[in-house]
Design a protein around this nucleic acid. Structure first.
Length: 519
RNA sequence: GCGGGUGUAGUUCAGUGGUAGAACGUCAGCUUCCCAAGCUGAAUGUCGCCGGUUCGACUCCGGUCACCCGCUCCA
């Protein structure tokens, strides 16, 4: 059992955020101007950490085809990369359903301060009544319905049965009737606002004139860029179904309430893949991706009780997920969701919803002619959509390990592959030839590993302080040159997680580190 | 968007109607042969921002921004 498994209280987000600031992982965006809600900047170590995570995904998923796994068809998995624009023709978002879906009208209650999705509110009235007093309740909420029945009976001064009432959607009522409604949990009418749209897509204007004709949207997901290029990729890359197209990119959502550090930001990065397959094979590919993605997150360090795979219930399937098809979330138990879990990645069987929508809207053929089957069809699609920003956050949360027995009181237990600082080189004392050996070793290691992360050289202050700094930065290994090095040509390796030390040859350090870093 | 809370050096926090401190960290020097030790010295804040009251505000009032908690939302 490792330390994570025995954790029964979450770490403090305040402490984690303080460390992120202190050590240069994440800063509040526009901090010197008072900040800006929902945006975060990555500092030097955070930027490298994020890049390492993105590289791990890019290399494993795309270049190595699911880490070299064999697909359910017994063959290697083929994935090609793509990089598409943040701004696309607005018709893309109409076809994808985002313009509609992102404009959900909401109703606020002035009394209870609650907010409801207008299309989820139902109105209970006396049968046959088309106006006057009504009682609003959330659909499928038995408790609210029972209360509404009781209040309506009281208002009408009679016992009522189900046959005495009618239920109509709130959105079907004329606006002026909203004032006659009694909201959930309220006694008197008039507390509900008219339905108002909250657009979650950032709007902008193309060209300098900025009229409504020039409206465009910042993408709320990278997936649509893949779907609209499906035909291009098919026509130019000699790919055959089954295959996947994947990309990493920034997306924007004008969240009502950005919260929980970087978890719900207005600007964030995604790592998405759309994997196309024959409709008859979608189930097995779904299961393949679901399991692979879970394993992948474990492989980069999110092990133990804080990570889980959760299949969705039927009633929470998204609009694009086909009946009975799979949708699963890889979830992480963030400190702010504890003891619950929050989304890290969604794996969904989207059937042919997206390609068909774009085919209908654009009239471009989204079909694939399958030589082997001698069949023409619109492929089904399995979508593993991961949050890069959320991945970084989960990695930070998982790495944060309090340890009262060490000087820093806390260390960041990054997987060596993700650690922004790969190694540090210290002369035990800053004299007697040690600094010179340290400089040489540092130069060698930097030459060899500098593309993967920082290699630090630190000669100042006592060795304890230097180790402590590296603990907070999450450096997995420190190499220390001491008085014996010049004669025995060996250095001491200090392991971050165990504090253990071992002696290895000066010339063997590069190979040794290569074997530890992974990736 | 609503309600509550918070906002002082990099971090964690004191503080008083008369223009600011501690600890730790950071930096420099000495010391130091393995875990923030010791000694000496240094830098750092228009006390979130704007406005008002006042002879004078970090301290009172208003607004605003940001963060935290709850509600809502998260396709």
């Amino acid at each position: 059992m490792n330390q994570t498994d025995t954790t029964d209280t979450p770490i403090s987000m305040d402490d984690l955020m303080a460390l992120c600031k202190r050590r240069g992982f994440i800063y509040q965006a526009s901090e010197i101007y008072g900040g800006i809600n929902g945006f975060w900047d990555y500092g030097p170590l955070g930027a490298q950490l994020k890049r390492n995570l993105a590289d791990a995904w890019w290399n494993d998923v795309i270049m190595m085809g699911c880490s070299g796994r064999t697909g359910p068809n017994g063959k290697p998995v083929r994935i090609v990369p793509l990089d598409t624009c943040i701004i696309q023709n607005p018709k893309v978002w109409e076809a994808s359903g985002h313009v509609g879906g992102f404009n959900d009208p909401m109703v606020d209650c002035r009394e209870t301060k609650s907010r409801y999705r207008a299309d989820h509110l139902m109105v209970l009235r006396e049968a046959g009544a088309s106006e006057g007093r009504g009682y609003a309740f959330m659909e499928n909420d038995e408790e609210q319905l029972a209360r509404a029945m009781k209040l309506l009976g009281k208002y009408l001064r009679k016992d009522i049965a189900e046959s005495d009432v009618s239920v109509t959607p709130l959105v079907s009522l004329p606006k002026e009737q909203i004032a006659d409604l009694v909201g959930p949990g309220v006694k008197d009418p008039g507390t509900l606002t008219e339905p108002r749209a909250f657009n979650l897509m950032f709007k902008t204007y193309i060209g300098a004139t900025a009229t409504e004709d020039d409206v465009a949207y910042l993408r709320p997901e990278t997936a649509q860029g893949i779907f609209i290029n499906f035909k291009n990729v098919i026509d130019t890359m000699r790919v055959r179904v089954p295959f996947g197209i994947a990309n990493i990119g920034t997306s924007f959502r004008n969240e009502v309430t950005p919260r929980n550090f970087t978890f719900r930001s207005r600007e964030f990065e995604q790592m998405e893949c759309e994997f196309f397959c024959h409709p008859s094979e979608s189930r097995e590919w779904y299961e393949f991706w679901r399991d692979y993605r879970m394993d992948w997150w474990e492989s980069i360090g999110l092990k133990g009780d804080n990570l889980r795979l959760r299949e969705h219930d039927e009633d929470e399937l998204a609009h694009y997920a086909k009946e009975g098809a799979g949708t699963a979330d890889v979830e992480y138990r963030y400190p702010f969701t504890y003891p619950d879990f929050g989304e890290l990645e969604g794996v969904a069987d989207r059937a042919n919803f997206d390609l068909t929508s774009h085919q209908t809207a654009s009239r471009a053929k989204m079909e694939f002619f399958d030589q082997e089957r001698n069949e023409r069809y619109v492929p089904h699609c399995i979508e593993p959509a991961a949050g890069l920003s959320r991945g970084v956050l989960a990695v930070l949360c998982e790495a944060y390990t309090p340890d009262p027995n060490r000087p820093s009181k806390v260390f960041m237990k990054f997987h060596p592959r993700l650690a922004p600082i790969k190694a540090a080189v210290f002369p035990l004392v800053n004299k007697e030839g040690m600094p010179e050996i340290a400089e040489k070793l540092h130069a060698d290691l930097h030459q060899r590993f500098g593309r993967r992360g920082f290699v630090e050289l630190d000669v100042k202050q006592n060795i304890g302080k230097r180790y402590a700094r590296m603990d907070e930065a999450g450096t997995p290994f420190c190499f220390t040159i001491d008085g014996d090095t010049s004669s025995d040509h060996a250095v001491t390796v200090r392991h971050r997680d165990t504090l253990e030390q071992e002696r290895i040859g000066l010339d063997a350090v590069g190979e040794w580190l290569e074997g530890k870093l992974g990736g």
